[in-house]
Design a protein around this nucleic acid. Sequence first.
DNA 1: CTCCCGATAT
DNA 2: ATATCAGGAG
Length: 215
Amino acid sequence: MRVTKAIKQQMLALLEETYQDTTTALTYTTPFELLIAVILSAQCTDVRVNIITGRMFPKYSTPEKILELGQSGLEEQIRDCGLYHSKAKNIIATCTMLCEQYQGQVPDSIEELVKLPGVGRKTANVVVSQLFHIPAIAVDTHVFRVANRLQLAKGKTPLEVEKGLMKAIPRDKWSDAHHWLIWHGRKVCKARKPECTVCCLCELCPSALLQEQQK
DNA sequence: CTCCCGATAT
DNA sequence: ATATCAGGAG
């Protein structure tokens, strides 16, 4: 079954209807806090990131305060989100750069953001869309999986999927669509056990049929 | 490509 | 036991 442009538009309309009120699940009160939360969210659930930042941000919520913690102090704070050694190292280096080159402010462009250690394309896309309302589609593990299953955008790499989604989705919906796909991936189109029977797109999804045949 | 990595669901 | 979780660096 071929997923036509018309089918993609139907999928997007259904996703919008179902997930219209969704937004980021990460809790933050400042641009800097969002940046740190997104860096911590690599290979870790947002729920766990919120537990960590919930106890860390009240005491350490600026680059200066984090630098006071130091490498080992920061590792202690973020230990249970995994990858803690490299995340702590990157966050320290990012805080140093923010203080020395960006007046302690979070940069507002993808080009500047990806210069920060621990910030790749996915994190930069989240930050510019969330903080500066720049249309962007951050392709994380959920968006990558869901887009490929629906064939909204096929690709072997996150960047390929990002480009495909940008073609399939009107620019003014990019940031919203990112959240529709995230929440759909979390709640329904899960990596291990996708719940196709309750999926709002089961009639349109090329992968749902495949699973029926496998049973 | 591999490595980083603890907590959780299955 | 093992796959997975808002990835990025070397």
